[in-house]
Write a protein that binds this DNA or RNA. Structure first.
Length: 490
RNA sequence: CGGGGCGUGGCUCAGUCUGGUAGAGCGCUCGGUUCGGGAUCGAGAGGUCGGAGGUUCGAAUCCUCUCGCCCCGACCA
């Protein structure tokens, strides 16, 4: 039992905050709105990065790095983009400090004012397209498929660990293409990569969809997204992929010569996922005992805990554990043998449960005599005794089973919490209770806005796979051909 | 930016109303008994009470200013 961890049912957001801190994922830093990602949390992020990066490479992308600073004039170039980000930009105005002539400390040197302010990147479309101008001359230079892993800053009013912080880590892919069709395909391909990653690695089922114009990325023609449902019934946007049309190419004058020797503007996409995925991972699976991690992303997949009284007993157990440990490692499993003697076994059980380690192996005197080992699953909190012979195979299979089970559990939860609603009263009531609410919408921004004002619910996405179905808008009663997904969102 | 809460050993907090020179639990160090679900006993170490100014013989406590953090809302990935 986790000492003092709040219950999800009583105070979900406190439960979330506590889990992040107690499981050693991250903490609030001395800097407002910014977090420190701790080694255990960062290890999970690194695993996410590795998996995603491999998927990007497999789809033909390469990594590069662009500057942290964006000259203000760059940001201004694409009008909608500029408007969208203007209110959340950190701005560098000076380049030097000096000793305070009035006493201790440092002051900003007024003589060191920058001629042009630099914005700390909230996203990099502008710097990158300013660069692409020089890289793209001919259709032979296309497609240009580049990704960068970096930090960005968006000055939010309110922050929450991983879900929304002033500075966060992410990847942003920026591609340039010769044709509209190719760019749209790229946008969809990367959305698919994100959805596959969320489902197969994180064990989080996601809806693939399009954003309504209101929710679209500033400067995009079309924004695709993956939306996940959290255990409290709120939606979380887990990734976005944008078809940018020729907007940025026109703003930055990025033209290429096509096969017919004509000048054309390049077609663009951009796509990103961030450390927010950590929040999705935590909120999708974890329980009142702590974190539950999918084996594929767990920094420690298996922990082995000795149960002993004397140093002699520990030595005997260790002798038995060592070959198992080595064999697990050789099988590519990330395993930890916790023989530290400053904590007792019971304490360790609780600690590794809090940290979401998928499998715990316990070995004590009774096991030594019987040739068995205790196998405990984090996802179901069940224990069983297994023969030591064949334990590695058993663990391998169990890791796969846990990965699948976690996903299935989350999928079942989403299905139980997805509702078709056809009247305004039902709609309001269901939004209040939470979950994905599938309802007809007349397609207008006005209606969307009204619904948001009255219920706090937003259109999370217009699902890509939904079938057309005639109906009446939940709010206005106007004709609608398709249900969209409403929910309260993070 | 509004509304609420809070800054006191590493952590959680009491003490503030009613001023008298700082305490508990957890953690840490050393030792003993323990050890199949967060053990226990004993001995220790550890704090300019967020900061500045003021009132007072005396301030964690009262007054003024200030800095910061958390929660709820508006903005957002």
């Amino acid at each position: 039992m986790a000492k003092g961890l709040p219950k999800r049912s009583e105070n979900y957001s406190e439960w979330y905050n506590e889990i992040v801190k107690r499981a050693d994922l991250a903490e609030n830093s001395a800097v407002r709105g910014c977090m420190v990602i701790k080694p255990y949390g960062f290890a999970i992020w690194e695993k996410m990065q590795r998996a995603l990066d491999d998927m990007f490479k497999a789809t033909g992308h390469v990594n590069a790095y662009f500057p942290l600073f964006v000259p203000k004039s760059f940001l201004e170039k694409e009008e909608e983009h500029a408007e969208g980000f203007a209110k959340e930009c950190a701005v560098v105005t000076h380049y030097r400090l000096k000793a305070n002539p009035d006493g201790k400390g440092l002051i900003v040197d007024p003589a060191a004012k920058l001629e042009e302010e630099l914005i700390i990147r909230p996203t990099s479309e502008t710097v990158i397209w300013n660069t692409y101008k020089n890289w793209i001359q001919s259709w032979r230079d296309l497609p240009l498929l580049i990704n960068q892993w970096c930090n960005v800053v968006r000055w939010e009013m309110r922050t929450r660990l991983f879900l929304r912080t002033t500075e966060f880590l992410w990847q942003e892919g920026h591609t340039a293409h010769a044709t509209e069709q190719e760019a749209i395909e790229e946008t969809e391909r990367m959305l698919d990569v994100y959805a596959t990653f969320a489902e197969e690695w994180m064990g989080v089922p996601v809806l693939r969809g399009l954003k309504s114009p209101n929710e679209r990325f500033a400067g995009a023609i079309e924004t695709y997204c993956i939306e996940a449902l959290m255990q409290d019934g709120k939606a979380l946007q887990a990734g976005t992929s944008h078809f940018l049309g020729q907007n940025f190419a026109k703003s930055f004058d990025v033209k290429f010569v096509n096969k017919e020797n004509e000048q054309e503007y390049a077609w663009a996409t951009s796509w990103g996922v961030s450390t927010r995925l950590m929040g999705a991972l935590i909120m999708a699976h974890s329980d009142d005992q702590g974190l539950v991690l999918p084996p594929k992303l767990a920094p420690i997949q298996v922990v082995i805990i000795p149960i002993y009284k004397t140093p002699e007993e520990l030595a005997a157990i260790s002798e038995k554990v060592n070959p198992i440990f080595e064999e697990l490692k050789a099988a590519g499993i990330s395993v930890k043998y916790d023989d530290a003697d400053n904590q007792r076994s019971g304490w360790k059980f609780a600690e590794y449960e809090l940290k979401g380690v998928p499998i715990r192996l316990g070995l004590g005197n009774r096991d030594l005599e019987a040739g068995t080992i205790e196998v405990a699953r984090r996802d179901t909190l069940t224990k069983e005794s297994q023969p030591i012979d064949g334990i590695v195979e058993h663990v391998k299979a169990l890791l796969d089973e846990i990965q699948t089970n976690i996903y299935q559990k989350a999928l079942a939860f989403r299905e139980e919490n997805t509702f078709l609603v056809d009247t305004w009263d039902d709609f309001k009531a269901q939004i209040e209770r939470g979950g994905f609410v599938m309802a007809h919408w007349d397609g207008t921004a006005e209606t969307e806005e009204k619904i948001k004002e009255e219920t706090k619910a937003t259109i999370r996405c217009i699902p890509l796979i939904s079938t057309t179905e005639a109906g009446k808008c939940i709010y206005s009663g106007a004709d609608s051909s398709k249900r969209v997904v409403f929910a309260k969102a993070y």
